[in-house]
């Protein structure tokens, strides 16, 4: 395998890993193994690889992860409990959510759920024969679901690459780019921004900001990949 091929394989594997990780972070209430993975050295390296982190732009987020790692080591149960509270407060309720994790909130004038965007997202999932596992009880444009879609497609891209199916690989990457352009990137800025206002919490705001950057850079990476294959 040439050096270039190697590079592509590495990138594909890492974006696949990150999308899966972020889906777990936002798609479910916190669980110990996910948190431990999130604060692992592997995640740090993967983020640094994708974000080309050499200018210390994300130091404060890495610091957050380091702190979390430490408190997990000293008091895993208490930390988990605290994060469960944070997750519930931010994404479930009962109070007004500071940054509701659904696309249609940001793209509809009325800031409500189950809007046209929801249906558009559902239509895209159906092209790959996916439906939300708890359809139709959860709006299809939940951040966790949109990230899951990206994770699945990233995995698929990896497989196509390994099997040498170049055309299929291109198609998946183009679809991912389209999904980023038309959906995730349309609202992630506002979501990541709004969630910073929730001053009492620290893990999810940091993760939201990292997610924002990962998505933006992945959009560029996809172009690079398409140019390279």
């Amino acid at each position: 395998m040439s050096e270039k091929q190697d590079a592509i394989a590495i990138i594909l594997a890492n974006r696949s890993y990150l999308y899966r990780l972020l889906q777990r972070v936002f798609g479910t209430d916190p669980q110990l193994e996910i948190l431990e993975t999130a604060v692992s050295e592997h995640t740090r390296e993967s983020l640094q690889l994708i974000l080309q982190e050499d200018e210390h732009l994300f130091d404060k987020h890495f610091e957050t992860l380091d702190n979390l790692k430490e408190s997990l080591a000293t008091d895993s149960e208490g930390t988990l409990d605290k994060l469960k509270g944070e997750y519930t407060y931010l994404f479930i309720g009962p109070d007004k959510l500071p940054a509701p994790p659904w696309e249609s909130v940001y793209l509809s004038k009325e800031r409500i759920l189950f809007q046209e965007n929801t249906l558009n997202v559902r239509r895209v999932y159906l092209e790959y024969n996916f439906l939300p596992s708890n359809y139709p009880h959860e709006a299809d444009d939940h951040l966790g679901l949109e990230l899951d879609f990206m994770a699945h497609l990233s995995k698929l891209a990896q497989e196509h690459f390994e099997n040498g199916q170049t055309e299929e690989l291109k198609k998946v990457l183009q679809d991912q780019k389209k999904f980023l352009d038309e959906h995730l990137l349309m609202w992630i800025d506002e979501f990541a921004n709004d969630i910073q206002k929730s001053k009492t919490h620290y893990f999810y705001p940091s993760m939201a900001d990292l997610t924002k950057h990962v998505l933006k850079i992945d959009n560029v990476i996809i172009d690079e990949l398409l140019g390279a294959i």
């Binding site: 594997a13 890492n14 889906q23 993975t37 996916f130």
Partner: peptide
């Protein structure tokens, strides 16, 4: 990069496809 996704194969959580 290594394919370290294995560690995340556990429960999918609520929001998945």
């Amino acid at each position: 990069g290594t394919a370290a996704t294995g560690v995340l194969v556990g429960t999918m959580g609520a929001m998945n496809l």
